[in-house]
Simulated assay, not measured.
Amino acid sequence: MDFRHLGRSGLVVSNVAYGNWLTQSASRSEETELACVRAALDAGITTFDTADVYADTTAEESLGRALKGVRREGVEIMTKVFAPTGPGRNDLGLSRKHILESIDNSLRRLGTDRVDVYQAHRYDPSVPLEETMEALADVVRAGKAHYIGVSEWTAGQIRQGHALARELRIPFVSNQSQYSALWRVPEAEVIPACIELGMGQIVWSPLAQGVLTGKYVPGQQWPVQSRAHDTNDGSGTLVGWLKDDVLTRVQQLRSLAADLGLTIAQLSLAWVLRNPAVSTAVLGASRPEQITENAKAADVQLDDETIARIGTALAPVATTDPVETENSSPASPDWRLA
Rank of each mutant, 00 (worst) to 15 (best):
E76Q: 11
T320V: 13
E73F: 03
S328E: 13
L283Y: 00
L302Q: 11
C194V: 02
R336H: 15
P330M: 00
P218S: 01
D321R: 08
M78R: 07
R336E: 13
V278P: 08
Q290K: 04
Q176S: 07
P218N: 01
V323S: 13
R38F: 02
V278L: 09
L314V: 02
E289V: 11
A295V: 03
V272D: 00
S106D: 12
D124H: 06
K243G: 13
A297N: 00
H229T: 11
F172Y: 12
A308M: 07
H162P: 10
A298N: 12
G44F: 00
A155F: 09
A285G: 08
E305A: 08
N275I: 03
T231C: 03
E131M: 05
V150F: 02
W271Y: 14
A66M: 07
V250W: 12
E187F: 02
Q119W: 04
D138F: 04
K215N: 10
G10W: 08
Y118M: 04
V117I: 02
S27N: 14
R122T: 08
P218Q: 01
A142M: 12
S62E: 13
D52V: 05
L94H: 03
T85A: 06
A163P: 11
D230H: 05
R254E: 15
L100K: 01
T79W: 12
K243M: 09
Y216G: 01
E131V: 10
S180L: 03
L136V: 09
L212K: 02
V224N: 08
N90M: 10
R4N: 15
S332L: 08
A258W: 07
K80T: 09
T23H: 02
W241E: 13
T320W: 12
E134H: 08
D104E: 15
Q176P: 03
R227C: 00
D244N: 14
A145Q: 13
A257E: 15
V217N: 08
K97Y: 15
N15D: 13
T154P: 06
